[in-house]
Write a protein that binds this DNA or RNA. Structure first.
Lengths: 233, 233
DNA sequence: GCCAAAATACGGGAAACCCCCAATAGAAAA
DNA sequence: TTTTCTATTGGGGGTTTCCCGTATTTTGGC
């Protein structure tokens, strides 16, 4: 996955980081971090309040691949309290490293999903006693959830790459045919349904593949679903 | 904030309806409704605090097809305040009917998405002045968002159909190959990548199609994505 | 209006895919 | 131990898809 550099946009980077800092202040958190992903474009956008040292270490060590908070939150609907994560080797490695950079292993990660397969993760952490954390958690979880939705909504709508992928310029015929393909119809079937030659169906399908930068029709169907052009059936 | 534990209450239907009633009481709402959908299974689960008369009318008239709150929320990340909906003919028809059953056109719909293409919509409405609504809205939106996540999480994990579809019995090899197909590889490519014959690849693919009840490979890819078995790439 | 680009439409031939069949080895279940 | 299931490979042959063309209509910009 390639990391999108949003700093090309004037003050987006600082704006979001500032937002995270405000979240920390308001809810008594030490640190906050946001990561937004779009499976279709394969892009990742991230903003953190951590020191550069930890961010650098995180990237250099490829911790994103083993980060248990991300692993869990990607599969969850509800917020993931880090205290409920499985204490596996990944967890140990990750949080041993983190503690060296002064980062607590008490925190929460909130997943937010958009309609097009995009997902945003808002994490917040604080070093304190277990009781204190429990109190804090139940007190701020509602607000944090709103914050997560808020930042993901903004990031998604301001990301040019994502926006472009949200609305590829497929003709109605192309979408129509792609939808039938996803429904399990053959080109001949679709031709009969639409009263056109199966040759023509194939042309539209090829054009769809090109516009979605897909090598094969199955890949094109996958991408069309991911960006909400069609629905599985 | 105390969250009502959904797992304590007896049977599903009354449990969820009871939960919605509690949400109403707690947040000064007239009515609340939840609708959960899974595009893969095509199942819809609904729980409401409305009178049976309105529910019946809603279904008989097929209002779900034109309901602007659903239309909008399905495409949104953030909560949708009904006051910001476009005042089109659908809106008029819908809320004219609704007012006859004593239902306000002041409300909010909160979308919640799971990792497998499932989506839940929690709606709450209240008849009051605009100022009062605005105040109420900003005050309870965080809590409502938590409630939405809470109920969707429970509905999804308790729905047998959904659960079954979440974990179809595909072998690791089959999933592996399906993932490569979604990545745009040909059967020959995949055979080379996995160091097996392209014949074998085709067998696994066929088996995958059968297990997913798919007529074609593109359809199988679509379904596998919809249920989170693989990710688009 | 005019021209370029895109959308829509059709066909031949080569490549890929899919379905029928059979067969082996190993793992898991009975 | 026997049986069943999974993973693997293969042949033959029909079907489908894909790449190469061409042609007409529609759309959009100057």
């Amino acid at each position: 996955m390639e990391i999108v550099d949003l700093s090309t946009l004037p003050d987006a980077e600082t704006r979001y980081t500032e937002f995270l800092k405000q979240v920390c202040e308001k809810h008594d958190m030490d640190h906050a971090a946001y990561a937004g992903m779009n499976p279709a474009s394969g892009t990742v956008a991230g903003f953190v309040t951590y020191d550069d040292a930890w961010t650098e270490h995180y990237q250099n060590q490829g911790l994103i691949m083993i980060d248990p908070t991300i692993h869990m939150a990607r599969r969850s609907i509800a917020p993931v309290d880090w205290s409920r994560l499985e204490r596996g080797p990944e967890f140990q490695r990750m949080f041993n490293d983190a503690s060296e950079f002064g980062i607590s292993n008490q925190g929460v990660t909130i997943p937010v999903r958009g309609p097009f397969g995009d997902i945003g993760l808002l994490s917040a952490s604080r070093d304190c006693s277990k009781e204190e954390w429990r109190k804090l958690y139940t007190h701020v979880i509602g607000d944090l959830q709103s914050m997560a939705v808020h930042i993901h909504d903004h990031v998604v709508s301001s990301d040019e790459v994502t926006s472009a992928l949200y609305h590829p310029n497929l003709s109605t015929r192309e979408v129509e045919i792609l939808q039938w393909v996803a429904a399990g119809k053959s080109q001949q079937d679709i031709g009969d349904i639409l009263s056109i030659s199966h040759r023509t169906v194939e042309v539209h399908l090829r054009s769809s593949r090109e516009k979605l930068s897909a090598l094969t029709t199955p890949q094109a169907v996958g991408r069309a679903i991911a960006i909400g052009l069609i629905t599985p059936s």
